[in-house]
Every structure is written in structure tokens, then in C-alpha cells.
């Protein structure tokens, strides 16, 4: 069976900065891939290329075995790729419901072009209930929610459509232990629904090994290590990072 998503030899340059220097990766249907790596390793950049937000300088992408050139976020979305950005991409002054349907608002048939706020509220409530997120009201402005609730809204938004590939950029960043546990639980429940591939960019090795099926380590724009989570351990990962660090320092 074809990989859900596959990238080959992706290069991304910003002027003189090479953020990605020939990255190849893939994620299988129903698999959780954990991406680890230093700050500035190029993880978010890779993610933005996979969502069509930025285009690569060179390299190719395949979605479910088909070659694609992602033209825009909407294009990627139409192929079932959804993501939660590191900055969450929520608008503080808008309600939970409006945020969940941002840029794919439900419209009434009449008058044409009028927002169907009732329908968006109903569906938002439904999605939050389905995935077990408890928010007091979908009419609340997002800026009034806690960090964990916002994270949950961003995840709920991403899975509310028929996403088949879900990308999460540091979903546990700035999150307390309890809230992190809730998000991990949510991700595992999404996985249990089957057929959803998840790519998670993470910083905590232990958490990543707990949740991911496979681990990929990125350093300075390249993939330096890749293994099934069951076959590696926190000390082994630490060791690789330390070795790399020493190599860079002595160079």
C-alpha cells in the first residue's frame, strides 16, 4: 500500500539560509510519526511545506501515491491534509465556533453569502463532543480560553473535516502535565478511530516514545536518525544528540 504522505529530497532555502537540506520522509496510513530535533532544525519549515503554506525550493511530494505540487493551504486541505501550527493560528477575538470554521465557513442558501452561524455553532459543539473536548460555550471568544483549551480547539478544528493526514507542530508546547496528558489522550483516541496518519513535532523524548509508532530526528536541515519507537529508547536518542553536538562543537 502507498504511503499516506511521502516527501523526497526536499530542499528549502530562505535567501542564504538553508532550512531544509534534502529531507526525505514518509508516514503510513494509521501511523503516528514523531519528529524530534533542535530549535531551528527545520521541523516547522518541513511542516509548512507539507501543508502547502510554503513551496519547497526543490524536491517532490506524494499523497497516497500520487505526485502532487501543493499550490496552497486550501489545496492541501482538499487532499485531506490538516494541521495545527506551532502558533495555533487562532484568532483571539473570534468565537470558538468561528475559529473552528475559519476559512471554510458554513453559508446559508438564502440569502446567499450569509454566514450560517447556527449551523457552525451546532457542528462545533458536535465535533468537540465527538472528540471529548469540554468547552463551556462555543460562543466564547478564544482569547478567554486557557492554553490547553486553545490547543484542543486547534486540534478539533483540524480533525473536524475529513482529515486523513494530521500534522501537529509542538502540540504540547507550553502545556502543563495535566493538559499535555489530555492532548496525548486525544491524539491516541483519534488514532484509534483508524485510517488517520499523524505527524507530530515534539520536544520531549519520553512523551514522543510513548505516543509515536516511529521516530525521526532532524538536525540542521537533515534527517539524521529514524527508527520504530519500540526499537529505541530515551538514552539512545540522547546519545545521538550528544554525539552530534560534540561533532558540531569540534568542527
Amino acid at each position: 500500500m502507498a504511503s499516506a504522505l511521502r516527501a523526497d529530497n526536499i530542499v528549502k532555502r530562505f535567501g542564504s539560509v538553508t532550512a531544509l537540506d534534502g529531507v526525505s520522509m514518509h508516514v503510513e496510513p494509521g501511523e503516528i510519526l514523531g519528529i524530534l530535533g533542535d530549535n531551528g532544525a527545520g521541523k516547522s519549515t518541513l511542516m509548512k511545506i507539507l501543508t502547502g503554506y510554503q513551496s519547497p525550493t526543490s524536491g517532490t511530494l506524494q499523497v497516497h501515491g500520487q505526485d502532487v505540487v501543493l499550490r496552497s493551504v486550501d489545496h492541501a486541505r482538499s487532499l485531506g491534509i490538516e494541521c495545527v501550527y506551532q502558533d495555533l493560528a487562532l484568532v483571539g477575538g473570534l468565537s470558538v465556533a468561528h475559529n473552528m470554521f475559519l476559512n471554510r465557513e458554513k453559508l446559508r442558501r438564502f440569502p446567499p453569502g450569509m454566514l450560517d452561524n447556527g449551523e457552525m455553532r451546532r457542528r462545533a459543539r458536535q465535533v468537540l463532543e465527538d472528540i471529548g473536548v469540554n468547552i463551556p460555550s462555543v460562543d466564547l471568544e478564544v482569547e478567554r480560553l486557557s492554553g490547553g483549551q486553545r490547543q484542543a480547539i486547534a486540534v478539533a478544528r483540524a480533525v473536524s473535516s475529513d482529515a486523513r493526514i494530521l500534522l501537529l507542530d509542538e502540540p504540547l508546547a507550553a502545556m502543563g502535565a495535566r493538559e499535555a496528558a489530555l492532548i496525548i489522550d486525544l491524539v491516541l483516541r483519534l488514532k484509534a478511530r483508524g485510517n488517520l496518519s499523524i505527524i507530530m513535532i515534539m520536544h520531549n523524548y519520553g512523551q514522543t516514545l510513548d505516543i509515536a509508532d516511529r521516530i525521526m530526528l532532524m538536525q540542521r536541515g537533515t534527517v539524521t536518525y529514524e527508527k520504530a519507537a519500540a526499537e529505541t529508547s530515551v538514552p539512545e536518542l540522547m546519545d545521538i544528540v550528544r554525539r552530534e553536538y560534540r561533532a558540531v562543537r569540534s568542527a
Partner: peptide, 24 residues
């Protein structure tokens, strides 16, 4: 208040990068 244009205008001013990431 009642159209996508208005909502996207608010989103653009409220979180420019976020709005762009949402594909606006």
C-alpha cells in the same frame, strides 16, 4: 457581521499569520 468577508477582515487584523495559515 454576517459574511465571510467581514469574518476574514477581523481574522486578518486579529492574527495576520494565523489567518494566512488558515488559508485566508
Amino acid at each position: 457581521r454576517q459574511t465571510r468577508w467581514g469574518l476574514h477582515t477581523i481574522a486578518t487584523g486579529g492574527n495576520l499569520i494565523g489567518a494566512a495559515e488558515a488559508g485566508i
